[in-house]
């Protein structure tokens, strides 16, 4: 266990999950005044890539709690541990490198980082751009807003309902929904689904050009050229965006063969 203090943050790094050792170290540091430092600083528990199950996680937090050190957030690259942590009410903190790349939330990864990962999976060549596991996107919505007109530059089409837009979102225009957005047209502006905090929302569009995609508090910069190169096609169409593990993913829906 390593302790580090930087800019109002106390980072406790743990690379092995051995309860006795952690307790022993914590006792040691408490004598040196760890409690006072923890009170003044934001406490971040850095778990590296440790994969913890729910019980392990609870026990670990309990140890810190017993030493009256409240954990403000955790750092972890393991998605399951992240999920447990969020369910437990402890937010996930990201290292500062990602922080600068994202405008809205440090948790979201830019989409251009996501695409190559999927593509590198050579064993699955035929489904190059589909995600390895399909998320369950079925959800109840309290209605739908159908809008048949182009959304023009400077105007915002906003609704709490799922928006079905039959028309284009022009450059400089914005379409914003608390639920999902389906665009039967061309997306050239900003689409924000799941506003402000519904990560289950999806965005679908027939065509797009230099769009900005936002789902809940995540934002993705869309690098059309690199995607076109990967798909080896001049034009991409029928694009679905959804969020998975706090990042926005993209999938090209292909025609289903009978």
């Amino acid at each position: 266990m390593i302790l580090k203090q930087e800019k109002g943050k106390l980072i406790i790094k743990i690379d092995k999950l051995e309860q006795n050792e952690i307790i022993k170290k914590l006792e040691e540091f408490t004598v040196k005044g760890l409690k006072e430092i923890a009170e003044k600083n934001q406490v971040i528990l850095d778990l590296g890539d440790l994969g913890l199950n729910e019980d392990d996680f609870k026990n670990l937090i309990k140890i810190f709690y017993n030493f009256s050190i409240p954990i403000d957030s955790i750092r972890n690259t393991n998605p399951i541990t992240k999920m447990i942590s969020i369910n437990y009410g402890i937010p996930v903190d990201a290292p500062s490198i990602i922080n600068t790349q994202n405008k809205l939330n440090p948790r979201a990864n830019p989409i251009k980082d996501e695409i190559p990962k999927i593509n590198n999976d050579k064993t699955n060549k035929s489904q190059n751009l589909s995600a390895p596991t399909l998320p369950n996107l079925n959800q109840e919505t309290n209605g739908i807003l159908i809008y048949r007109k182009n959304v023009r530059s400077g105007s915002v089409l906003e609704s709490e309902k799922t928006i079905l837009l039959i028309g284009n979102v022009n450059p400089g225009a914005e379409i914003k929904s608390s639920n999902s957005i389906i665009i039967l047209g061309k997306l050239m502006g900003t689409a924000h689904a799941g506003y402000p905090n519904n990560p289950n929302a999806i965005i679908f569009t027939l065509k797009l050009k230099n769009p900005l995609i936002k789902i809940a508090d995540m934002v993705a910069e869309f690098d059309e050229e690199s995607i076109k190169k990967q798909v080896k096609s001049r034009e991409i169409s029928n694009i679905l965006f959804y969020s998975d593990n706090n990042s926005i993913r993209m999938e090209i829906i292909k025609e289903q063969k009978e």
Partner: peptide, 16 residues
């Protein structure tokens, strides 16, 4: 050009 078209779009929206 794109900048002029975007501005025109905005103006059309206001006029509409």
């Amino acid at each position: 050009d794109l900048s002029s078209i975007r501005d025109a779009d905005r103006v059309i929206a206001t006029l509409e």
